[in-house]
Nucleic acid binder design. Structure first.
Length: 570
RNA sequence: GCCCCCGUAGCUCAGUAGGAUAGAGCAACGGAUUCCUAAUCCGUGUGUCGCGUGUUCGAAUCACGCCGGGGGUACCA
């Protein structure tokens, strides 16, 4: 389970049926206490869950077992007392049973299931959304790759993960800003300019040996060509400092534009690209460090400035200004986060590659020195990707400029398949990304499995229209005709969608949506193969059309959250 | 050495807030299409949930200790 439980007030939502049952239980317990059937106590959070086993009812609660210790009483007895006291004025329940060590199992009346679909029909593309975030301002910062080369596949997973977290939070009622931090102030930028310089000389016919630390990719030569085309050999006579700065800016600008294009093609759009250079404007970083030094978060050792990160659980203190007077990346990062909070974000989410996990303690130290609570920062780690082709590792070397770019992945496997495949694992675990598998249009590729379910539903709707049916709304149909167990299974799955999103939002776990969409598609495909939606019975057809329409809405909503298209035909 | 992540079926992985008899896909084998899309479905097996101790009514899940894999341990970014 990831971080972030303090993000929400706990039981604010819950999907409709669970909420109803929770209310019944809470009222019953309350009554028991008032009438002396149970001892006085604080009522804990009442959990209602979906039992694995069908014979355990539609829903179950463990509340009696939770109460057992404070009540000093056999949980089965407590369960029985609560059960006996339950009032069910709406007539939700078929029956209630006490089972096992003290579970309370609820069997919901058949006719009630289908009423849950009204919400789906009413809300349509908004079904599943909530107002949990209550408009709180959240920033998600992700990708943030140096503008020294095109995005490669290693960046892709972070890009999708951050993007979908942002989408999920938006759907949960947060006001979300997506941000890309451009590290354009460090030494790597000078090397970028230098790299272009050497290629420029090469194009002008000089023999060069590229220094080992320079970027070697072909894109550098392409930029150099443009430079040569524009300036001819005039740059050779300019002062080197000026030329390097010019080349750096020019290259970084070009590369950044390319990065933006690639991200756009990947369905990832940022609200803000924040330049590290901004932080240094008006001596911003220096001023902040001085302030922190006065507050004793920072101490001086000869020419070096150290931050007391050990005060916040870090292994050792960290340098913020080097002996040579250059601030470290960490120094800029403190200033950057200060800037984030000054812009009014209540919570800031950093999506990092897992190889940066060692920076977590110092970042938390940083924001606490700024006077923020730990809760104001959430760090989501995304594990690295193993790129494969037909099961074999694809060798990559960033230094030599040999890597598979994001653009190439999108071109080869497609945006939908790429995105979906990156979300098929928890961010926390390593991901094998197989290019051949990802572009295969078959049952091996879950993205098509889900999309196919959606396309199939669209097809059913087309057939129905051809045969003179209208796509029914909730009040047009007799939902009591939906009596099959698999129809109830579908309704239950649809019903849990809002809570699923809530869980994903709370834990920053986009993969839950991926798994859910596969599950729902599976239930639907099975239902489809077993039963005819458009059949000889007009009323039954209408009822099933409505059900299937709801499935389609939820599939579409789930795919939309993943940034994956929901095709009408395939 | 220290820190973080991972360890669940032959393989890749889920496991929703500690719940009842542990799940899916793939792989293997056998079946399903007069009719809404076969990119689909149905059936057949598999587990010391890495090992151990503890916490409690109850542990894959929490705590501690081991074992194995990966990553991090810069005045690099």
């Amino acid at each position: 389970m990831a971080r972030g439980p303090t993000f929400f007030i706990r039981d604010e939502t819950g999907y409709p049926m669970k909420k109803k049952l929770r209310d019944l239980l809470e009222r019953s317990i309350d009554t028991c206490i008032r009438e002396g059937i149970l001892k006085e106590c604080a009522i804990p959070f009442v959990e209602v869950e979906l039992p694995r086993e069908g014979s355990h009812g539609d829903y179950a609660s463990n509340i009696a077992m939770v109460l057992a210790s404070t009540q000093r009483e056999n949980p089965r007895k407590i369960a029985q007392r609560i059960t006996d006291t339950i009032e069910d004025p709406e007539g939700i329940l078929e029956k209630v049973e006490v089972a096992g060590p003290g579970f309370i199992n609820f069997f919901v009346r058949d006719s009630l299931w289908v009423t849950l679909l009204k919400e789906v029909d009413d809300m349509k593309e908004h079904y599943g959304k909530s107002d949990l975030g209550a408009g709180r301002r959240v920033q998600v910062e992700f990708v943030s790759a140096n503008p020294t080369g095109p995005l490669h596949i290693g960046h892709a997973r972070g890009a999708v993960t951050g993007d979908v977290i942002a989408r999920i939070l938006e759907a949960s009622g947060f006001s979300v800003s997506r941000e890309y931090y451009i590290n354009d102030a460090g030494n790597q930028m000078n090397i970028l300019g230098e790299s272009v310089w050497h290629r420029y000389l090469e194009i002008l016919g000089e023999d060069i040996t590229l220094p080992e630390n320079c970027y070697q990719g072909e894109y550098i030569s392409n930029i150099a060509k443009e430079v040569a085309g524009k300036y001819g050999d005039s740059l050779k006579s300019e002062a080197k400092d000026t030329v390097f700065a010019l080349l750096t800016d020019l290259a970084a600008g070009k590369i950044l534009e390319e990065i933006k294009d690639d991200l756009m093609a990947f369905g990832v759009v940022f609200d803000c690209f924040f330049s590290e250079r901004e932080l240094y404007r008006d001596n911003g970083v220096t001023a902040l460090l001085k302030e922190l030094e006065e507050q004793n978060f920072i101490y001086r050792e000869e020419d070096t400035l150290w931050f007391r990160t050990t005060d916040y659980g870090d292994e050792k203190d960290r340098v913020v200004v080097r002996e040579n007077g250059e601030p470290t990346y960490f120094a800029a990062d403190i200033a950057y986060h200060k800037n984030k909070y000054e812009r009014g974000f209540d919570t800031v989410i950093d999506v990092w590659g897992a190889d940066h996990h060692g920076y977590i303690p110092r970042m938390y130290a940083g924001i606490q020195a700024l006077g923020k609570e730990k809760e104001a920062l959430e760090i989501v780690l995304v594990q690295l990707v193993n790129l494969l082709r037909s099961g074999k590792p694809v060798a990559m070397s960033t230094r030599a400029g040999k890597f598979v770019t994001l653009r190439e992945v999108i071109d080869e496997v497609g945006r939908d398949a790429a995105r979906f495949n990156f979300l098929m694992r928890r961010s926390n675990s390593h991901l094998d990304f197989d290019l051949e598998l990802a572009k295969e249009a078959s049952s091996e590729n879950p993205v098509y499995y889900v999309q196919y379910a959606h396309a199939r539903i669209s097809s059913i709707m087309r057939t129905a229209l051809e045969r003179g049916y209208e796509i029914p709304a909730y009040h047009d149909v007799d939902l009591n005709l939906l009596i099959l167990p698999e129809e109830h299974t579908l309704v239950k799955a649809i019903d849990m969608f809002p809570e699923l999103i809530e869980g994903s939002a709370r834990t920053f776990e986009p993969h839950r949506i991926t798994f859910y969409s596969s599950d729902l598609a599976s239930i639907f495909h099975s239902y489809y193969n077993k039963n005819r939606v458009v059949n000889d019975d007009v009323e039954l057809t209408k009822a099933r059309l409505f059900l299937v329409k709801c499935v389609g809405i939820v599939l579409r909503n789930a795919l939309t959250l993943l940034g994956v298209s929901a095709p009408e035909r395939m």
